[in-house]
Each structure stands twice: as structure tokens, then as C-alpha cells.
């Protein structure tokens, strides 16, 4: 190791300072949202900007947790996130790895075809009809399968695999492994930072599933978290005359309950990242394995 010089030390300090400032700007909304979520709805109506929880109360959270539907939906979303992420990583990484091998015949045309799927969107009706014809309506698989991969993920993951030298797999092939073994036993373990990253992408996407659930899941007992949450944000107190909220001027639940919902919907998935970070730190080095 070579010692840092004086200017480098200054660089380091300034850098850290800047990042901390930036973090404060970024953390403000979290704090703000959290404060409102702990504020008594009546206090909120007194107006002004909420810089700390006023009339501190957990009622907003209690309200959200008050129905079995809500608790079940957390389980469903967790199921979607775990199964979807696992399958998504397998499907996407196998394809991305294959396409990163330059010797593959037809590689270019396949990549072009995948690129087209990023750019062209056929709209919701064809997708809906496909799901129905596959017999997936009302099944959680209708939320998992259509999101197992995307062109965007394939291209990005491929760019990670691109940097893995061909010499590595040649060595494995000499050991009698076929390409599938190479992928499973050598490439994937070497790509943990990439897998952690894309795992996060998948998990977030599955955790946030909303629109597809509206379309494909008729049975409200199978609704994922986001759908139940948004449903709960619409006031349940309605009258005969005004109880028709497809119309303009809908009455919604107090802001404080909305914010509690934001916190509940966000915190679990946010917690995933710190657990993945150790994989980034390790960052298995391709170069060092070669020797």
C-alpha cells in the first residue's frame, strides 16, 4: 500500500462532506413522511408544515394493520418477491450469459430481437388475452411469469458477463464441464455483485407489482400489498350520495394514514439493500481467480 498524499486526503474529506450533505437532502422526505405518519390526523388539519410528529400516535399504523386482508397481502408480496427474484435471476442470467459469449452463432440476431421488445409495447389487451389463454387468470403466476426477464435486464447483465474472459471457461471445459456447468459453477459464483444488483431490481419490481394485479387477480384474497394499500387509502366512509368515488371530488383518507402506508410499503424492501451490500464489498475479483 502506498500512503495517501496531502491533496488526496483533502479530496477524501471534501468528498465525504459533500456526500453527507447530499444524504441529508435525500433523507429529508423519509423523515417528513415518517413524521406525518405519526401525526394525529386532527393535528394535521391545523395546517402548517409538519417538521416533527404532532400529537404522536400509532393509530395510523393500527388502522392499516387492522384487516386480515392487509396482513395476508404482505405474505403474498413477499412470496412474489422471493419466488420471482429467484426464477427471474435464473432465466435472465442464463440467457444473458449465453449472449455474452461471442462465439455463439445467431447471437446478433437474438440480441436485436430482444432489443425490439424493449422498444415496442403491444398494450394491455394482448397481454391480458395471453394470460387468460395460458390459464393464469387469478393465479399468482400471472404476476410472476410475465416479469421473469426484460430486455433491459438482459442487456445490462450481459454487459457484466462480457468482462469475464473466455480463458476461464476454456479451463473449465478442459476439466470436462459443459457450458451449463460453467455457467452454474463458475460464472454465477464469480458474478455475485451483479446478481445481488439484479436480485434487488427483481425484488423491488415484484414487491411493487400493482397494475398487473388489478388486471389479472380477481380474487381480492390474493391481492398483493400495493393493491391493498392503495385500496385502503380511499376512504371507507361514504354516503349514499357521495359514495361513488369514480366521480370527481373523492374523499380520501387523511394524509397521515397515507404516509403510514408509504412507510409500510417501502421499509421492508429498503431493508433488502443493506443485506446485499456485503456482496458488493467482497466483489469477487475476476482477475484474482484466474491465477
Amino acid at each position: 500500500m502506498i500512503k495517501d498524499s496531502i491533496p488526496e486526503k483533502i479530496f477524501g474529506r471534501v468528498n465525504v462532506l459533500l456526500l453527507i450533505l447530499l444524504s441529508l437532502v435525500m433523507v429529508f422526505p423519509l423523515y417528513y413522511v415518517f413524521s406525518i405518519s405519526l401525526t394525529d390526523p386532527r393535528e394535521y388539519l391545523k395546517g402548517g408544515i409538519i417538521l416533527y410528529p404532532r400529537g404522536l400516535t400509532w393509530d395510523n399504523y393500527e388502522y392499516l394493520f387492522s384487516t386480515p386482508l392487509f396482513i395476508r397481502s404482505i405474505g403474498i408480496s413477499a412470496f412474489l418477491a422471493i419466488v420471482g427474484t429467484t426464477l427471474g435471476l435464473i432465466v435472465t442470467s442464463s440467457l444473458a450469459y449465453t449472449l455474452s459469449r461471442k462465439r455463439l452463432l445467431g447471437r446478433k440476431i437474438i440480441l436485436l430481437l430482444i432489443l425490439i421488445t424493449i422498444l415496442f409495447h403491444p398494450g394491455i389487451i394482448p397481454n391480458y388475452l395471453l394470460i387468460r389463454e395460458l390459464g393464469l387468470m387469478n393465479s399468482l403466476w400471472s404476476l410472476i411469469l410475465p416479469a421473469l426477464s426484460s430486455g433491459w435486464n438482459v442487456f445490462l447483465m450481459k454487459s457484466f458477463f462480457d468482462s469475464i474472459p473466455a480463458s476461464l471457461e476454456e479451463a473449465a471445459v478442459i476439466d470436462g464441464c459443459n457450458d451449463m456447468h460453467v455457467w452454474w459453477r463458475i460464472i454465477l459464483p464469480l458474478s455475485l455483485p451483479a446478481l445481488a444488483t439484479f436480485g434487488l431490481f427483481f425484488a423491488v419490481a415484484y414487491w411493487n407489482v400493482f397494475f398487473n394485479a388489478v388486471l389479472y387477480i380477481n380474487d381480492f384474497k390474493k391481492w398483493p400489498l400495493q393493491l391493498v394499500l392503495r385500496q385502503m387509502l380511499i376512504d371507507s366512509n361514504t354516503s349514499a350520495g357521495g359514495g361513488n368515488i369514480l366521480e370527481e371530488g373523492q374523499m380520501v383518507n387523511p394524509q397521515s394514514i397515507k404516509m403510514a402506508a408509504v412507510i409500510i410499503a417501502t421499509i421492508p424492501i429498503m431493508m433488502v439493500y443493506p443485506f446485499l451490500q456485503k456482496h458488493f464489498a467482497k466483489g469477487v475479483m475476476v482477475g484474482s481467480v484466474k491465477e
Partner: peptide
Amino acid sequence: WVSPNSYNEKVNV
């Protein structure tokens, strides 16, 4: 029972 969120899209499909 369809959520009023995105009710129209659901009707359309």
C-alpha cells in the same frame, strides 16, 4: 370486486 384504482383499465380488458 375491483379496486377503484384503475377500474377503467380493468373494464377495458
